[in-house]
Design a protein around this nucleic acid. Sequence first.
DNA 1: TTTTGAGTTGTTCGA
DNA 2: GTCGAACAACTCAAA
Length: 485
Amino acid sequence: MSSSVIVWFRDDLRINDNPALLAAIETGLPVLALYIFDEASEGIRPLGRASKWWLHHSLASLTKNLASRGVELVLMKGPAHAVIAELVQQIKPSALLWNRRYGVAERDLDARIKADCLKSGVDARSFNGALLYEPWEITTKTGDPMKVFTPFWRAAQALMAPALPWPLPTGKMSAFKPSSALNSLSLEDLSLLPKRDWAKHFPETWSPGEQGAQEKLDNFFESAFSGYAEGRNRPDYRSTSLLAPHLRFGEISIRDVFQRAGEAAHLNPKISDADLRSFRSELGWREFSNHLLFHNPALASENYNRTFDAFPWADNAPALHAWQRGLTGYPIVDAGMRELWQTGFMHNRVRMIVASFLIKHLLIDWRFGENWFWDTLLDADPANNAASWQWVAGSGADAAPYYRIFNPMLQGEKFDPDGIYVRKYVPELAALRAPAIHTPWLASPADLRAANVSLGKTYPLPIVDHAAARERALGAFKALKQGKS
DNA sequence: TTTTGAGTTGTTCGA
DNA sequence: GTCGAACAACTCAAA
């Protein structure tokens, strides 16, 4: 007779409001908590370097949190179906439970494992632990997937209020003790940390795990939530929640975030309806991205709008490299790219500016940007990253029109008016006064000397001219549009 | 089936 | 300095 239940953790590294874990506890059977580091299964995109750093620390945190409830997190490595088949063979559990992922390779893998389990008499069940709404729940009146955000989000919220978070049963869980030793690995065996010390400053900003996530949420409610509707555009001060990487790895429940935002807004009269709506709509974009990914599995690699397949992208390795390193000569762009490199994160407003610059000023294929973000962003998410890059490129759903080309000088002056953000990440310009800090090539020789800036030496001249690049992009995108008909 | 209103985040130009 | 229009029509979603 079987006597245990396996909870397979994936992108849900938390114990609070975790439907699969709760279901496992409710069976009353001893629980085995499992994580499989899988880079071997067909079609699964390997994590970027930043994500691996995060995963390492997040697993350490989950291990601790589970241990405090009496359960060990078992770590394994390899193609998930093989690992699970062997484990099932060894311990003969009565059930295997997990929370869903929405990429096609992940779904195929899960379906295969579910079928395997059913053949072996193991009850395999999946739950929604990642989204407010399942991607297939939201449709047009005719049953088709949605392609525009606003109707999508309206329909989602009209469908029903998102489910409330579940309280976790208190006390110790019943832990499964295997009779023979499991093939489990140590965290170090997974080799997730980078070899060079590129990530050494990440801990100044980040503390992966459930506690870190809750702290970020509380901080946000106390400081940036009031005025969020406007303030969220400002990279020069802490104006956003910083929850993205925690949400990426499921360290905090989206239902918890949604619900508690409502409570915080209710309690604090300084938080306006617009602030709440605005914050929740960001969660809505996360839902929308997953909706798009679910219905368009190739979202990260193929143009959603196939018209863009004919776009003549530039092959420009030096420009791509300058962009990646934050050496384009446009201070707000360079500050963003260096914030990314140094902290594993970039403010949302600046993400749009740097993405627009890569795509429209440099005419470089959005997929190069998507890949760089995938590798360097701690919150690199299969749905959000792909959907957002396509949105900026104009190839995505509900995308920006082609003539929307961000002016990096203007954006800098508007959203970083005192140059605080640029100064922080581009220290070689720190002594330049605003607004000249956003246009160093226009500063007088005397001002440059006084600020110790030598253009072309201590800081690059712009690698493209804004006005010329803008005209070039307008022409290229216009031609694409006309070529279609 | 046809019609209608609407669509995250911008920039530039000219009055 | 401020403000509205143009950019360019197109697609989506619902009535």
